[in-house]
Amino acid sequence: MNENPLTRLSPAQRILTHAVLLLLAIPFLLPLAWMISTSLKGDAQIFPREGSSVSPVSLANLIPSPVQFENYPAALKTVPFAVYLQNTLLLCLLNVIGAVGSSAVVAYGFARIRFKGREVLFVLLLATMALPGQVTMIPTFALYTKLGWYGSFLPLIVPAFFGAPFFIFLMRQFFMTLPEELAEAARIEGASEWDIFWRIILPLSKPVLATCALFQFLGTWNDFFTPLLYLNDPSRYTLAYGLQQFMSSYGGKYAQLMAAATMFTAPIIILFFLAQKTFIQGIATTGTKG
């Protein structure tokens, strides 16, 4: 806790703070609670009774009764969830390896080696982060189509191996804080730059590598746009895209739809609780050092 006078509170103020926070917490939690609750309900609890045009929604209705776990296996039967999951995990794995690996190599070059044009190129790299994707999207699509990659996973994998500007930026900042003496000593003993990068810098950089790996995993897991552009065969759909397809085909099956949405969201929430520190630190650095 930081010790600034803004945070010192009287008992009455403490109670008021709790009351306000609890009240505000309701709208933040309710949509997720409603998603899970709907996923466990039978149609009788979701749709209006005969003769009524509206369903009896109330907070008492938040508790499913009876609890119907059948919506989950039913959703898995309606859409090939296992195939989508497999595709998504494969893409996540390859994107994490590609983006983190290539960005680390590039970041080392920008952080630790002096070369002609380094500053100009780094400014260009930063500028590409602000470039709206729409400007490059169409020619890139045309390029992939010419290469015959449309419909395959390649457009969703290959770009990751060319470094991600944001990760390069984060890693460069981190590498620059590491003491130069370690590298100097290794150089005197005849180590190459690659050895220094691989044996000395990388092992010291686990926190920043973890942050980038996490961001990339989330980015690929959540990505809706790239699969929408490039995938046309349902056997290659990802979870994000498959879920949207599920909704547009079976939008009225709310219980199953929410079961599918819950299955899609749950791994991310679990991941958050497992890697809370990496999450929070990663986001905090983005805003304050960025």
């Binding site: 949509p31 997720l32 897991w221 959540n222 969201t265 929430i269």
Partner: peptide
């Protein structure tokens, strides 16, 4: 929460 899931939950 992934944007696709958020969108679907809010439609509901």
């Amino acid at each position: 929460v992934p944007a696709v899931a958020t969108s679907i939950v809010f439609v509901w």
